[in-house]
Design a binder for these strands. Sequence first.
DNA 1: TTTATTTACTTAACCGATTAAGTAACACGG
DNA 2: CCGTGTTACTTAATCGGTTAAGTAAATAAA
Lengths: 336, 336
Amino acid sequence: MENVTIRMLAERLQLSTATISKALSNSHEISEETKQRVLALAAELNYVPNPYASSLRKKSSHTIAVVIPEVADSFFAEAINGIESVAQEKGYHVLIYLTHESFGKEQAILKDFQSGRVDGVLISVTTETAAAAHGLAQLVKEIPVVFFDRVCEEVTAARITTDDANAAYNATTHLIAGGCRNIGLLSASRHLSISNRRAEGFRQALTDHQLPLTDASILYCSNEPAETRQLLKTALQQNHYDGLIATTEKLATAVYLACEELSLAIPGDIQVIGFSNLSTARFLQPSLTTVSQPAFDMGHAAATVLFKALKSSSFPLQEQQQVIPSSLIIRNSTKG
Amino acid sequence: MENVTIRMLAERLQLSTATISKALSNSHEISEETKQRVLALAAELNYVPNPYASSLRKKSSHTIAVVIPEVADSFFAEAINGIESVAQEKGYHVLIYLTHESFGKEQAILKDFQSGRVDGVLISVTTETAAAAHGLAQLVKEIPVVFFDRVCEEVTAARITTDDANAAYNATTHLIAGGCRNIGLLSASRHLSISNRRAEGFRQALTDHQLPLTDASILYCSNEPAETRQLLKTALQQNHYDGLIATTEKLATAVYLACEELSLAIPGDIQVIGFSNLSTARFLQPSLTTVSQPAFDMGHAAATVLFKALKSSSFPLQEQQQVIPSSLIIRNSTKG
DNA sequence: TTTATTTACTTAACCGATTAAGTAACACGG
DNA sequence: CCGTGTTACTTAATCGGTTAAGTAAATAAA
């Protein structure tokens, strides 16, 4: 059985395709009786409109793109949940693109969006994405874009973030209160604005408590788990940290692994805080003190703002800046 | 600046749109020189073809759909990773649909696929999806579909699964070896074939070891966390299990929570095995003995099989059945 | 030299829906 | 009875590529 088209409905009912199209979109130009006949036949033949024909003509795809570094991370997974909940409600389709932290891949993906494939984009950039990311600045001019979590501060665009500096400040203060004097911050990137904000908060807290900031205070990790693991072990052996803040979920797990391998007791030898949304954080050995980001809410907020822009082109999307607070959840990996 | 179209290129170069189109697709009908001129101008003007125009004409979208119950689950997140790795390599786009375990949503999503929106579908059905899922049988006739993990055995289609019965059998045997005599199986669904396979393996293991199967042996849980929690607590208090097998990741976490609330020691009072791909399983308190499914590989295999069918319509997709083994990883939540 | 073939294009139809513009048929006010 | 609206349609153009069919010129074969 061939796909049912509007033309087939038209022939069966001895009407023009225009009439069918208008009847299906409930146009006032069409009589009630005709609408009923069209709807009935459409249901009978199980007519489903071809989305691409409609997209081509209307120049809108009813589709958005989500561009993220990875899915196997509870922050991003929950964020997708938030995004999808809004998209589903609005009847939009969601394309997923994973950059795997590669700036090159990100560029290629974004370039494709100039084709009109999607009506809007939600993005959390890679750890490699440089400040002067030309492709991003370009994209923002062409279609609605909302950055969430990992934003690009140099680009004027809508941004949904958490209070990264504050969160890091509070985490650091908590470690200091627990007796830490030699704290390390594990950062995922030198380029990432959220990494820099977290480093800022960290530095400020050290300063405010008259603790020194050394070269070893901030440790830039790799995207390669194996590399990070080696780096981490070496650093732990050389610097004898008594506190660590892992600024990503993967890094938090890496710390547990490294401590196990080096037989360092948490929180006895070293206290640990992780930026993480792991639902299992409370069941870890020891349970992990976390900075929990409102992942679902951030995804939800980002999508909500995007859809406002899609609905009304006069909506000042680029001015939208939301900061949704994270919370420090104290558990047994710290003594504070 | 308006979107660059093939017609604009044609006008600039004083050629027909047909020539441009053929030049861009490297047709042998076009001279080398003309191809170069077209490519050069396309690059200069940053031409990106409109995917919907091409989809409409070619009746193929270069897009696949992934339909899953949720993303915030490490099995599904890793499976998406596997799928995406293949899709990216082939230059395909990936639409994500979450059913949130609702059969109704699943039906609506699948119906939309009759529109030609996607060239193929990868699906893991909901816990509610009944055997006689009419929409699925219909869909399989219309476009290439591959089931992964949560398959629908009544529908003739490609299937990528794990050896669920075996895995459950081994898990049960492991508990018995550890001294358990009153084991409970936490199941997510009565309809799901993988749940039934796991229950089968469980029953077989009990039988083989002369252990009784009672009404309390298999506990059907809800999709509502709160309900499951209550159900679980009640069951734990009434039945005094000495071993539990949680057949989903969410259920494994729920067990840890319930045991904590009831002050049941794992593995002292009760031993626990979870079907889970949590990277943190080894760091849990106590570390969790898991049946680990090859999530990435399953996603990869499912996508690979799908693309074979997309490439060649003579590929016998419906006959493809792959069983990728799970592994039992023994940790401290069990004594065996 | 004439015919056949190849090369490098162009013309025009097409995919399926949308929509501006046009047109009968009928109603209604003056 | 005539002009003005209104209703309920139809016609045809359009979105941006793709492709079957056609053509003129150059080249090869007979």
